[in-house]
Nucleic acid binder design. Structure first.
Lengths: 169, 169
DNA sequence: TTGGGTTACGTCCCGCGTAACGATG
DNA sequence: CATCGTTACGCGGGACGTAACCCAA
């Protein structure tokens, strides 16, 4: 029973302020409870793609060049960054037609984003250590064909470890 | 000029083995270069959703319950996990109709995945520290309506800090 | 035979690219 | 007026849910 619902979810963080140690006592009047909420858009929360885009833009400080480096069109970057800002509830970049700058929040988020991306890469590394690994060494020529075949083979049976290397000069 | 291409990318890690310090010397014969490649599917690499699904399944060791906790249907979990395994090139889970277990690789990836998700959460925390924060405290009754209005307001102007709290007993 | 993971298939949403727009120096 | 980020719009692909399948205890 959830039948195509995919309802929007609203995440609510309830911060109950810890009472100061001095004036303890469970007086039954007025426990002020701050509810810090954050809206969760449908689909997923912060997406990796958004972080990658943001880091690239932060590197270049230029949407156009970032888009080029990402091999996508510029508007896609714009939209993605805007969505990330909406999602996080902060402005990450100050845009002016001649200059793009990180905001203070942008700087902090940037650092966290880099770390997050690195952490995700470590997932792949962890997997790679256990995965079947194929090593292909070859001179020029049949290289691409071999690679293609190798890719297919390894995707078929990931745990196999294939090795066909030769020396190149 | 990239015009709807979105070609598949193939990432190739070239590992040039560092020569043992003893037998140094740049002899020009046969530098063996191992090329460890990994195929990159179109679209994005490892996705957060996949990691979330995987962590949940690893918690429950049961696809059905995991799906329930994730508020999605079971097949979605199956497919997602399968895709992740394909992506990473390792089997993460041993499935048998009565029992789901983590593989060795699964255990390692699980640890890395938890860390990655935590890192991503830290992005949100970093943003939240800078964001406009809304605190809503209220008794029962108008709660939902207020929340709705608050959500709209904060999404409109994320930097505003709205605060409308009252005491509840 | 039943519990439970997988495959097939149709549908809908999301994200991209192109094109037009807007703002700022 | 030029540069560069944003909005509008149509389209294709991906992900989900339902349903059917299959396999093991």
């Amino acid at each position: 029973m959830l039948a195509q619902v995919r309802a929007e979810q609203t995440e609510i963080d309830v911060h109950v302020p810890t009472p100061a140690p001095g004036l303890a006592g469970n007086q039954n009047q007025g426990c002020r409870t701050a509810i810090i909420w954050r809206h969760r858009r449908r689909g997923d929360r912060v997406e990796l793609r958004a972080l990658r885009y943001f880091v690239t833009v932060a590197d270049e400080l230029h949407f156009g060049r970032a888009a080029e480096r990402l091999h996508i069109a510029q508007p896609a970057v714009s939209r993605r960054i805007a969505a990330l800002e909406r999602e996080l509830g902060v402005r990450l970049l100050d845009r002016s037609p001649r200059r793009v700058r990180l905001t203070e929040a942008g700087r902090r988020v940037l650092a966290a984003a880099r770390e997050a991306l690195a952490a995700v890469d470590r997932v792949r590394v962890a997997a790679r250590e256990c995965a079947g690994v194929m090593r292909i060494g070859t001179g020029a020529g049949q290289f691409t064909a071999r690679l293609e075949r190798g890719i297919d083979a390894l995707r078929e049976r990931p745990r196999d470890s294939t090795s066909c290397s030769s020396t190149c000069r």
